[in-house]
Computed example of a mutant assay.
Amino acid sequence: MSSFIDFQNEIYLRGLGGELPELPMTAAGLERRAGEVLDPAAYAYVAGSASAGRTAAANLAAFDKHRIVPRMLRGSTGPGARELSVEVLGTQLAAPVLTAPIGVLELVHERGEVLVAEATRELGIGTVLSTAASSTIEEVGAAAGEWWYQLYWPADDELARSFVERAECAGAKALVVTVDTPSLGWRPQDLELAHLPFLAGKGIANYLSDPVFRAKLPAPPEESEEAMRIAILTWVGLFGNHGLRPADITRLRDWTDLPIAVKGILHPDDARLVVDAGADGVIVSNHGGRQVDGSIAALDALPAVVASVGDRADVLFDSGVRTGSDVLVALALGAKAVLYGRPYAYGLALAGREGVRHALRLLLADLDSALGLAGRSSVAGLDRSVLTPPR
């Protein structure tokens, strides 16, 4: 692909022959269409937020506090010559975008995580595999290009270490420790449907395939319905860990040479603690609004975290990205890259691998366009001079 903005030209050229895009051209459009085709429980799980949804709404509204100030007559490069590539946590990416870890993608497609890995490999961007995946670490590692492994640290250190070792062996380029989910948030959409997919054995493929986990079971989970029920109950007792401390990041640093990022950080003091403990990166995130209702918007937290540790660690951003201009704003506020979540899952629901590719190309083409029209030739060096002061 010569440039991401070529997507725009493809659509217009096909239009000369009367061909219209089969999929919506906005993140909101993908969500609306997915809501029409997905099973209600699957849609609720992906789209749902904590309690009244105020944090999810705040994530989107936070971008409205910032306005891009386009600059003219700067001799900036045109389509095909703009530089979007970055290196973050030692991983080279064609653009500053990775797919965020979303669990239980089998709810929207039986080969969900593998198809996401294939799409991101083609586009040259990154993907972050969830511990709560429906495909195993090894399956995704075989399909992916540049990928990171996201660790939900279980209530068993031996199992946590096994996950890390498997990710290393499968080719992960970095580890992402999510610390904002020691237990699940209050999610009314799921509760109204009494739907927690893990209790049906979904989203626990990495547990069921792990030798440490299997050693805890009286019988292999595939042996019978009763054996699977026991495996699920064993998972219930292991998922989540309210006891994590910065010292655990130090222990993880002793386990692996891979770069480590800590996801779910919103306070600058927490950022300093994890970087002091050995983290190479921090991902500013409120889990897409799925954990604490009324939380600070992730974008509002980003500048203070960058000021706190940005000279010592790579700071990434997650929660609320929907457009290329959103990416530009996050980069201008100090993020090295962003994680992009729900829209690619909606694309997956609508058209499998091609739907993921479509959702990602929307974002990347929009970013390519916004960068050039703002008078910039590269994502490198983006700073607050691109923006008006926040309102």
Rank of each mutant, 00 (worst) to 15 (best):
A119H: 00
I137M: 14
L123G: 00
A144F: 12
T136P: 15
G124S: 05
L159T: 12
E138G: 05
A205F: 05
L123Q: 02
G201L: 10
A143P: 10
S209A: 15
A160M: 15
A132Q: 11
T181A: 14
T127G: 01
A119Q: 00
G126K: 03
A170Y: 11
S130D: 10
Y149D: 14
V179W: 06
L175C: 04
A155H: 13
A174D: 07
V128P: 01
H195G: 13
D156T: 08
C169Y: 01
A170T: 09
E192C: 14
A119Y: 01
T131E: 12
S135Q: 15
L115M: 13
A117T: 09
T178Q: 00
V212E: 03
I204R: 00
E146M: 12
P154N: 07
A172T: 12
R187Q: 03
P211M: 07
S134E: 12
A194G: 15
I137K: 15
G124R: 05
L191M: 14
A132D: 10
S162Q: 00
T127D: 01
A133R: 07
T127V: 10
S135Y: 10
A200D: 15
T181C: 07
D180T: 05
S209L: 03
W153T: 12
A194E: 15
H195R: 13
E122Q: 07
L175M: 07
A117Y: 02
